[in-house]
Design a protein around this nucleic acid. Structure first.
Lengths: 182, 182
DNA sequence: AATGTATTTCTGTTTTTACCGAAACAACGG
DNA sequence: CCGTTGTTTCGGTAAAAACAGAAATACATT
């Protein structure tokens, strides 16, 4: 019995697909991901095609994209020559991998560009001072964020989870009595 | 002299526009935002139209959208009846406001839906157990993230900045010797 | 109220993106 | 070498988004 015969599974999948579009991910990609996430076994591409009613080529592209995020991986199923696919089930891992990839694709190039622009602007006598200042500020801001991310990224997962559970209370460890929660 | 006559200002604006599209924001909206961010004075809608070459209606919609994120606001300029607009220049404020609004629009409804689905699934004898489990997990995960965000959100800005600068070193305050940096 | 001006909403067009289906190409194993 | 599986490319189509221009509305001033 196909997974999506269940109305709640289908509702999940449809919503997940829409979520994707709102964050710049194409609907097919996020739907394939949702299907694999809900599945209790590795699925071959053909079955994804059948269950979602998408073109074979489209599913192939979607799987490639999901693998590039490292949130779906190919697995071998014995007795079957076809490739099968499974989604990462640990949601914390899923989130950090998506974040890492989007930073790599979009944020890092942006930081690089801002850096170039800022560097050129400081030497440019003709540049309006506020333009120079605003772009420099943006570059510094994104660099700071990126630096923070790189530090947090390498923390062991249990540490990350512990920190998150701690929530705003981490602020109580700061000097200067800044914390409201402490 | 129009702001965008400067090639670096233009490069910034074009890149910002593309960034927007990759994150599900329409290009006009992010370009208007970029222009206001670079401007050293409040701009009336007409001038935005001229500088970006967009239709008046389009600019109107973009401004409305940016105001709904609270990263652009209307200001009065004396001696001029027209509305003028300025962008939030504090980038930390900008980020937190965007995050708050996107959570409100997209994450919160998703959590609500997952909650409904999970609640229904636990009573549903016919539901595949793994579907129930996966959706419940997703609901819990998003709820935890949302809870963390709500806690961090209300911290004073200096506290947030201090925490960010601290980076991975916050982990050293955790019990259990989890930190590599400590 | 009337007029001029600013702003939003509406409607249709253009542009872009997503998608399908077919075909070509590649890898692999029997 | 031939069937099976998988990926990539491509032309065309459909759907969605962006956008422009006109119309309608609101606003302010007199």
């Amino acid at each position: 019995m196909p997974l999506l015969d269940h109305p709640d599974a289908k509702a999940f999948l449809l919503h997940w697909g829409e979520m994707g579009t709102q964050w710049g991910v194409n609907r097919s990609v996020s739907q394939v991901h949702a299907l694999l996430y809900l599945s209790d076994r590795p699925l071959p591409a053909d079955e994804i095609v059948d269950q979602l009613g998408l073109a074979r080529s489209n599913v192939s592209t979607a799987l490639k994209e999901l693998q590039s995020y490292a949130i779906v991986r190919r697995v071998h199923v014995e007795g079957d020559r076809r490739d099968h696919f499974v989604a990462e089930l640990d949601l914390w891992d899923m989130l950090t991998r998506i974040a890492a990839e989007r930073k790599r694709r979009e944020i890092d190039p942006t930081i690089a560009l801002m850096g170039e622009l800022a560097a050129r602007l400081v030497k440019d006598e003709t540049a309006p001072p506020h333009v120079r200042e605003r772009i420099t500020r943006m570059h510094e801001f994104l660099s700071t964020l990126g630096g923070w991310y790189e530090q947090v990224r390498v923390l062991p997962k249990p540490t990350l989870i512990a920190l998150m559970k701690l929530g705003g209370k981490v602020a109580r460890f700061l000097p200067g009595g800044r914390s409201k929660a402490g």
